[in-house]
Amino acid sequence: MEGLLMVRRPDDAARQAPGLRIGEVARRSGLSVKTIRFYCDQGLLNTARSEGGYRVFSGESLVELEIIRALRSMDVPIAELARILEVRRAGVCNCLVLKDSIAAKMTSIDARLEELQAMKAELARLLASWQECGGVKPDPSARG
């Protein structure tokens, strides 16, 4: 988890590299083109357009995609992701924002675990009290 909180900045070469097209970003990030387009459409990534109308990404976009990917794996909602990225782009340390998000997710998981434990206990009670219906079981040798 510490790697998630310590976000890498692209080196100078990556920052000054000519814009990357979406296929190259997909290849480097391991995300699909469709997913990257979705993140763009949701306002999570800042892109420019080439003269030909193609989306052009910076090296910083790769770092942001790494953050998005990690936080989405924890089911952080898109709106929360947008807030985290805005704070980061403003140059403000967002460790507290991330810690709050992670703590909230842990609380949510704890509540869900309690619900699942209660459901499991109810199913075990139901199974333990199960009575056979007394019907005739099919004869396995009578396959037709």
Rank of each mutant, 00 (worst) to 15 (best):
E66M: 04
A103S: 12
L44T: 05
E66A: 06
R112K: 14
Y54S: 11
F57P: 14
A142Q: 10
I36F: 14
R27W: 06
E80Q: 05
D139L: 00
A104T: 07
P77H: 03
L98C: 13
P138W: 06
L126G: 01
M106D: 13
K105L: 05
G144K: 03
E51P: 02
L20C: 11
E24D: 14
E114I: 15
E2F: 09
L20M: 14
G43Y: 04
R15I: 14
D139F: 00
C40S: 06
L123V: 05
L45Y: 09
G144H: 05
I102G: 00
L45N: 13
E64C: 01
M119V: 15
Q131Y: 01
K34H: 13
A13V: 15
L31Y: 06
G43P: 00
L85E: 07
P10S: 15
D11M: 14
P140I: 02
R15D: 10
V92C: 07
Q117L: 11
R89P: 05
T35F: 11
L85P: 00
C95L: 08
Y54W: 10
T107M: 10
V33M: 03
P138S: 10
L62W: 02
W130S: 04
G134Q: 03
N94M: 11
P138D: 07
V136F: 00
I36W: 09
S61T: 13
